[in-house]
Design a protein around this nucleic acid. Structure first.
Lengths: 156, 156
DNA sequence: GTCCAAAACTTGACTCGGTCCAGATTGTGT
DNA sequence: ACACAATCTGGACCGAGTCAAGTTTTGGAC
């Protein structure tokens, strides 16, 4: 049961509690899960957690750079533990499945913008939207899960 | 008062109503505004609109590709009328100001991902996060508007 | 010009993701 | 073992957005 999670927390000045350990492990086992899904997962392991503990822990861990939060349009925030490599995401408009994807252009290329308006840019967030193989072969009508557009149609 | 908005709507098979004209004009005059801000603006012109009419109209216009919706993490959806050129956005973590920005790599480069997992990719959404000149010269403490992280600190 | 069906609008209730608060509990340094 | 700060709990709350039912407007046909 010693998977290094505890020492990782300690090393970052975060108190190690049952909830936090369980939450970190849940993120590892379900990358790209929402806070709610993680809470569910944690409950199957720990028995119970409050919603607040989950949000608080995720917030702390994101601040400490142990987790990364992704917030795609039209969906709740999702969390993953792959941090520090500036990778991007590919999301299906049909079923909302999400894949990690490496940057096409090389290493951290996206941090360079044509005209930075004097900004100090620290992150380039890239999301590719499309349709996964399964959803491509499905008639556009019966789409399972909420597309990011408001009113039904989700063609581009 | 004939700014072509009406014919633009008609040309796209959208009925031209007072609300819709006002909403389109509001988007032109306040790019990157939220639905609420647009409703306010429309009210100063038209007198009154329901929230629902605003959401509905914006939804229709986005579907018709006359507007583009941007949904940055930690903020309500914003709308702009610059469509079809695959430009990106630069947002200040301090004050949430948002700038348009052209793609660094050329024309629609972002649609090419390293490994597309068999997806049919139709859009690459790119958001640069940073701090604008004004906010850079401000002590990190007193930040005006909600940063996209949950719990206060918004360093990377 | 009038009529009418479809489209659009209004109002109000509701959902969902997330935050705030106050009090109880727990982890940790001494 | 103790004390205290950090954390957790439960419940109220908030903002953005959606749903549903009923009313008004638009625009094409006569």
């Amino acid at each position: 049961m010693t998977d290094g999670v505890e020492s990782l927390l300690r090393a970052n000045g975060v108190r190690s509690t049952a909830q936090r350990l369980a939450i970190m492990r849940a993120v590892s086992s379900q990358p790209h899960a929402t806070a709610d899904q993680l809470a569910e997962e944690v409950r199957t392991v720990i028995g119970t957690v409050s919603r607040q503990a989950v949000y608080d822990t995720l917030g702390v861990l994101v601040d400490k750079n142990l987790l990364r939060r992704i917030q795609p349009a039209g969906s709740a925030a999702r969390y993953e533990n792959r941090v520090g490599d500036n990778h991007h995401h590919l999301i299906c408009r049909g079923c909302s499945t999400m894949f990690d994807i490496d940057c096409a252009v090389g290493t951290r290329p996206c941090l360079v913008a044509d005209d930075d308006h004097g900004f100090e840019i620290d992150e380039a967030e890239v999301i590719y939207w499309g349709r996964c193989p399964a959803c491509r072969s499905t008639p556009a009508e019966n789409l399972g899960i909420a597309p990011p557009t408001q009113s039904g149609s989700n063609q581009i």
